[in-house]
């Protein structure tokens, strides 16, 4: 019998780590996507995503069900990612240093290898370009692209107005277009 999410949350509120494992299995990839979009570095993203789930478990008694559990979770993730970036400024990640990795990926390519390689390169360049934005600009672009959140929801998560979200998104997109140039 499948246990509802709210039942799992109530079990977690009583300290049941196994119930929490089920919730984590459901959402860890989505949380990781949001954090990776903001941090670019896989190791940093992994650390912040794990910290997100740890903090959420420690504070799960504060979750009263006013929003969905995932909404509550990604708010923690976004705020931790912003905090992480402010504390730890790092340079842009180099493109594929490991040639073996490049070769393995090339072998996996399908019927249109040129397009696939170009798309992958675009993806990497896009992440590198996002990495050069400020934490606030990264947050809006990732929340919009990954979660498809409305400006109102983004504003609520970041503690700013819808107008600010709109102007930050406009600025961030313009910067990304400049950086990516002919790749788009």
């Amino acid at each position: 019998m499948e246990i509802s999410e709210w039942d799992l949350i109530q079990k977690c509120q009583k300290g049941d780590v196994t119930a929490y494992e089920e919730l984590a299995a459901k959402y860890y990839r989505r949380v990781f996507m949001v954090v990776l979009g903001m941090l670019h570095h896989q190791e940093d993203a992994m650390e912040v995503a794990q910290e997100t789930f740890y903090r959420a478990f420690k504070n799960i008694n504060r979750f009263k069900g006013g929003s969905s559990f995932y909404t509550w979770l990604y708010r923690i993730a976004v705020n931790l990612a912003i905090d992480f970036q402010r504390r730890q400024k790092r340079g842009v990640m180099d493109f594929k240093e490991n040639m073996d990795e490049v070769i393995v990926e090339t072998e996996r390519l399908g019927s249109d290898p040129y397009r696939e390689v170009r798309d992958r390169e675009l993806g990497e360049r896009l992440l590198a370009a996002i990495d050069q934005l400020t934490p606030d600009h990264k947050a809006v672009i990732v929340m919009r692209a990954v979660e498809g959140l409305s400006y109102k929801e983004i504003g609520r998560t970041l503690g700013c107005s819808e107008g600010t979200v709109m102007s930050r998104l406009h600025y961030a997109r313009k910067k990304l277009q400049e950086k990516l140039g002919s790749y788009l």
């Binding site: 860890y28 995503a49 798309d119 993806g123 896009l126 672009i141 692209a145």
Partner: peptide, 22 residues
């Protein structure tokens, strides 16, 4: 721009196994 960002993040997240994460 929008679709590329989502697809690159989805591709990377799909490689993440649950066991080491958990």
């Amino acid at each position: 721009l929008q679709s590329s960002l989502k697809s690159v993040l989805e591709a990377k997240a799909s490689q993440l196994a649950f066991e080491p994460f958990w």
